[in-house]
Design a protein around this nucleic acid. Structure first.
Lengths: 117, 117
DNA sequence: GTCGTAGTTCGATGAACGTCGATCTGCAGC
DNA sequence: GCTGCAGATCGACGTTCATCGAACTACGAC
């Protein structure tokens, strides 16, 4: 790891030249950054974060009809949030008759957790 | 932890009654969900995520002039992203003469990491 | 003082977001 | 067939976002 701290840019440099040579580079490439950011963005709403929390803690499939009364938004809004989580690959759903059951996909949050670690 | 999986709502219930009793509840309260979602939202952009990645891996203060050439956006856009990260409490900055140095605040990501764990 | 430079803030623009009510789609029961 | 319900999708609305160039601020050099 680079430990050059507080690299002081040279004064008196050629006009137009960058103020200092770049010595830091991202460890995460663009594609991985997009993947991680997509997951983070999906978690970037309190309702969606609590939805994921409920589904994870429950460790199983949960009926949408159980989720709706937990939040102070309309059913269509909740469905929209669930779709966002599905599109981000965090949860998936399964229909059984009239009811739909949601569950967290295993290791969907693993990469983000690892990066934060 | 609640392990009632696939709770089947009763058919033939009283009209107007909820389809099934709620048996799941969020483990994360509203305030914590807002805090976590704010951090996640700040990380929900590839540029900001890579910025945080660079600052963390560097383990010290990094001059803005080193960050600008790493990304394909204007300097004002990068400054805007850095402000978002500052507002989210993830990074902070320090001015020294003409230059500004950014660094990740210790444990700014700890709560999110712990929740994901 | 003036001049140039690093970085922030401002203003505008187009895209994405969160929310709602209304509508549509399937399925169960009759 | 028809009716009623669970859930998804649609359309609209106001808000927030990412981006840019331009203006501004603060500092060093002279």
């Amino acid at each position: 790891m680079n430990v050059d701290l507080q690299l002081e840019p040279k004064t008196k440099r050629a006009a137009g030249a960058p103020c200092c040579e770049p010595v830091v580079y991202p460890d995460v490439d663009r594609e991985k950054a997009i993947r991680l950011a997509d997951v983070a963005k999906a978690l970037g709403d309190p309702i969606r974060l609590q939805l994921v929390d409920v589904l994870r803690k429950h460790a199983g499939k949960v009926c949408v009809c159980e989720l709706v009364p937990l939040f102070d938004v309309s059913q269509s809004t909740l469905s929209h949030h669930l779709k966002k989580l599905r599109d981000a690959g965090i949860v998936d759903s399964e229909r059984q008759g009239l009811w739909a059951y949601y569950y967290v996909l295993p290791d969907a949050l693993g990469e983000l957790h690892a990066w934060l670690g």
